[in-house]
Nucleic acid binder design. Structure first.
Lengths: 349, 349
DNA sequence: ACCCTTTGCACAATCGATTGTGCAAAGGGT
DNA sequence: ACCCTTTGCACAATCGATTGTGCAAAGGGT
């Protein structure tokens, strides 16, 4: 359907121009000429008429008739965060390659708007949903899942849920980061957490606890602060932690935004990293290596996260079957740079 | 239309359950009870039947009938770049508030895929398009514009085109940045440009030239390198520039990604910023102030860019009239930090 | 009691494509 | 020459909502 100055060319016009019926025009245009024994000659008539009229079929009429929208929903808590926008990019690119379009929505870390957005997307009859949910409630998602709408969760999942999830190996990631800190002699490590109760946060805490235990160190919950994966939460909790525990030597920030908040505190307090305080932060970033000092980070394989989510959703859309494997864990990589001080080899301040 | 285990509840079922006709059910549900004199009692019957059946109307059927999709297309050259993802966020949020959904597409800086994506979006009958085009070709966009589809360009526009554009005041921005460099005593300034021929790039070059002229300095085109707004282009051109001009004291990077490439060159060459080389880069970033050293940047008001694009597109969709003003220029702000060396007050190396 | 207006809803067309089916004409075999 | 198969297309139903219009019943005025 091409709109030229309020006049829309429809299949009817193509059929008339080619001197054939609607059905013949439709079949010729959708490459079904052979299957329906349209002669090569009529096929050409239709194709050239369509080309001349600059016709393209209305997707909404087609969707309506075929009951397939070729629409994929993508819901993210913050599209402007590199972590999520990278996932969005992978998924949209993959979708486009498969002839699907992506409806993108931003839940702003609110379960309430998340639910509204999902309702909107369902009304639009998306064929699948890729979502990084806020992660505190799962009922609305499990209901969706039970409905047979293909749903893939990215990053934030739920323990022992039937929902299919693609996420990093948070536990191992956190434990490895802690291992580095401990190996460098750090004993009192503040944790700047994200949203308590969300899977990434809890898994990371488990990893942290495991590593502390392995080193024979106590798991002191007063060293864990924060309630959002945001810069402001990181800022507040870093400040509070440094206030309450004068002898903290290292901070572990559980997201890039939280890390940013911690950095702000350090500049305000004129605390030198790593000499006065060591930092490791979750999520690598192009800028990480150019920070003062270069930041040691936990790099999630965001490309693979996005790509696997895309692959899983399309497999499900095509086969109509849910994958057996519930949780797909992607390995992470610690990128060691210069933000961790070695308390053992260096002289202490 | 609610799907529960392959069974879809349609308006028909609601009407039957309420014991009314399709038309009455439709009108009761869309709040037209009063206008069509549906009694409060029947209205209630319909509403509770719909609630009980968990009915919601099929947007595709509705779109098909009303010829309104309530769909907005957004096309960006790189969704994962903070500059663009921030625009995406503003536009999607605004769209959602207005009952519209956003179809997001990523052109990967290719005019060819941009055209394909636009064709896809048109086939889906979007009611408006917000696009940051690649910026080298405009014919396909002007054709769209002539078609009466509301189109708003963001960031990259075209000189003397009927297309409505929201963009920063690139000329003034670049000129102010140059003014700072010149005031600090820099005379030989390398420019790491983006895609030549695109409006932001050309406007920035004009601003640069104007400021040089004002200062009585020559505009040396051999000091301008680069062909993409990407990190790799920034890397290559910074390297080349430093090779060919041993006496360059400052670099002006025309995008955040380009700046990243320049930073990489400096670490490889172990050149100290700002002592050995000064840098100003376009586009501010949360990390900019924590870089080594804190980066002086040109901060585009990306929220306003996105918001104004959203406002303009919806005004156009609602009124059906194109705004008279073609180019909406948003002021920028220079954020002075520590990446520019003052050659005049400090001793020279 | 009669007529006119208002109330309260139902009928049926419609949006633009896709697709199962049917039928005439052409072709082919004996 | 007759019959059967194949070729090549057209007819008409259909997807699920919205909306202009019409009509019976109720109400109201004199």
């Amino acid at each position: 359907m091409t709109q030229v100055k309020n006049k829309t060319v429809k299949l009817k016009h193509v059929a008339e121009a080619a001197g054939v019926s609607l059905s013949t025009a439709s079949r010729a245009l959708s490459g079904k000429a052979v299957a329906y024994r349209i002669s090569a000659h009529t096929e050409q008539l239709v194709l050239s008429a369509a080309a001349k009229l600059d016709f393209y079929p209305s997707q909404v009429a087609r969707s309506f008739r075929t009951q397939k929208t070729k629409l994929l929903g993508v819901v993210l808590p913050d599209v402007s965060n590199l972590f999520f926008s990278s996932i969005a990019r992978e998924v949209t690119t993959y979708a486009e390659e498969n002839g699907y379009s992506v409806l993108l929505a931003d839940s702003r870390e609110s379960t309430e708007v998340e639910q509204k957005l999902i309702a909107q997307l369902r009304a639009r009859e998306i064929e699948g949903l890729v979502i990084s949910p806020v992660g505190l409630q799962k009922e609305h998602l499990e209901k969706l899942h039970a409905t047979n709408l293909p749903v893939i969760l990215v990053d934030r999942g739920f323990p022992s849920s039937p929902l299919i999830t693609v996420t990093s190996d948070h536990r191992k990631a956190a434990s490895q980061a802690m291992k580095i800190l401990i190996a460098m002699g750090h004993r009192k490590i503040g944790v700047l957490q994200g949203i308590p109760g969300t899977l990434p946060n809890e898994e990371r805490l488990i990893g942290i606890r495991e590593e502390l235990k392995r080193a024979g160190l106590p798991f002191d919950t007063s060293l864990i602060k924060g309630n959002q994966f945001s810069e402001s939460s990181g800022y507040r909790s870093a400040k509070q932690l440094l206030n309450e525990h004068f002898d903290i030597t290292a901070l572990f920030a559980l997201s890039n935004q939280i890390g940013l908040g911690a950095l702000r505190v350090m500049t305000e307090l004129r605390m030198k990293i790593p000499n006065e305080i060591s930092i490791i932060t979750f999520d690598d970033h192009p800028y990480s290596e150019f920070l003062a000092p270069a930041m040691t980070t936990v790099r999630q394989d965001v490309k693979t996260l996005g790509r696997m989510a895309a692959e899983l959703i399309f497999k499900q859309i095509k086969t109509g079957r849910k994958p057996r494997k519930k949780v797909h864990q992607i390995p992470v990589k610690i990128v060691e740079r210069a933000s961790v001080f070695n308390l053992l080899t260096s002289e202490k301040e």
